[in-house]
């Protein structure tokens, strides 16, 4: 959107003076594309990132919202762009799900993962007033009667995690899908659901108000802000996930561009001002360098495709 671009550009220009010295990035302006609408979760994350990234990278960084098709339009925009480091797409698992579920013209396989920046811890939570004290209690209930577990969206990472947990625990629980995390929160709060799965930052306000309680996390290690909460794996079910937030570009990114990002992102994550901003937003820094990230995305895609195929959602 032009007005947005103008606004961001104005913000970025203020920083231009500082960056003149370190300027060896091949292009002047970097556009970060998101399929999230203005003010949406990914969008706010990206705008915050853009604010601090400019000086580190030595280029103006602007954000462009390409909505529609759950990311399909944004991927098409990327594939049609030059691979010179001027355009990147803010990736979340959504872009893999969209690629697999809807067979758009351009899929995640047509893009080249750049680096990863953050990961959002996925957690299992329940209403503060519920009887469940641990994940074991939830599974026990699902064994004797019928568990009701909530996932924010159909065919999402959350749903996949719950299906895997169901298999790992050997129970028959009803997995109820919703139209987003808020919709599901109501059903957890009013006791319709035993548990819900979501990202910590979505629960922030309810956690502070002590309306919900986290039972377990799907992360590999315990999360820093919730040191007493065990991981799902510790609870005895081998289900681990990383909900990544990174960047991807058109295929064939030049070496110097990749190197510039691999240098800029770790620096950025250490920047005290930016650190304060993303810690407040409950984002966990998780830098993954280019080579590793390519493998990671590939594996994530293969795993997801297998899950969707095994469950018969896609052919």
């Amino acid at each position: 959107m032009k007005a947005i671009k103008a606004a961001i550009l104005a913000a970025a220009l203020g920083l231009a003076a500082q960056q003149a010295a370190a300027d060896d990035y091949p292009v002047d302006t970097v556009t970060l594309v998101t399929h999230s609408s203005v003010g949406g979760g990914s969008d706010v994350f990206l705008r915050e990132l853009a604010k601090y990234l400019g000086p580190k990278l030595g280029a103006n960084v602007i954000v462009e919202n390409v909505k529609g098709g759950s990311g399909a339009n944004a991927m098409a925009r990327l594939v049609a762009s030059p691979a010179d480091g001027s355009v990147f797409y803010a990736t979340t698992p959504t872009f893999i799900y969209t690629s697999l579920l809807s067979n758009p013209e351009a899929t995640y396989k047509d893009l080249e993962p750049l680096v990863n920046v953050f990961s959002d811890p996925e957690v299992i939570y329940t209403a503060a007033g519920s009887d469940f004290k641990s994940l074991k209690d939830v599974v026990a209930k699902a064994k004797e009667s019928r568990g009701t577990w909530g996932a924010a969206n159909p065919a999402s990472l959350e749903r996949q995690l719950l299906e895997r947990l169901k298999t790992a625990a050997g129970v028959e629980a009803a997995i109820v899908t919703h139209e987003g995390g808020g919709d599901m929160m109501i059903n957890v709060l009013n006791g319709t659901l035993d548990i819900g799965v979501g990202e910590v930052q979505e629960l922030q306000s309810q956690l502070e108000a002590k309306q919900v309680r986290i039972l377990a996390t799907f992360t590999a290690d315990r999360i820093a802000t919730q040191p007493d909460v065990p991981t799902v794996k510790e609870s005895g079910y081998d289900v681990v996930a990383r909900k990544f937030r990174g960047l991807a570009g058109p295929k064939g990114l030049p070496e110097n561009v990749i190197a510039a990002w691999e240098k800029a992102i770790p620096e950025l994550l250490e920047d005290p001002d930016y650190k304060a901003a993303y810690t407040a937003a409950n984002l966990r820094p998780e830098f993954i360098p280019h080579d590793e990230y390519v493998t990671f995305i590939d594996e994530f895609g293969t795993d997801t495709a297998k899950f969707l195929k095994d469950s018969g959602v896609i052919e």
């Binding site: 609408s37 003010g39 706010v44 808020g182 929160m185 109501i186 309810q206 901003a277 937003a281």
Partner: peptide, 24 residues
């Protein structure tokens, strides 16, 4: 609840988020 029930309130939520205010 911090829950936007419609597109319009979702944009309003965005307005809060931009200013670092957690709604709920």
């Amino acid at each position: 609840f911090g829950i936007p029930g419609s597109n319009s309130t979702a944009v309003l939520l965005g307005g809060f988020l931009i200013h670092g205010i957690t709604v709920g």
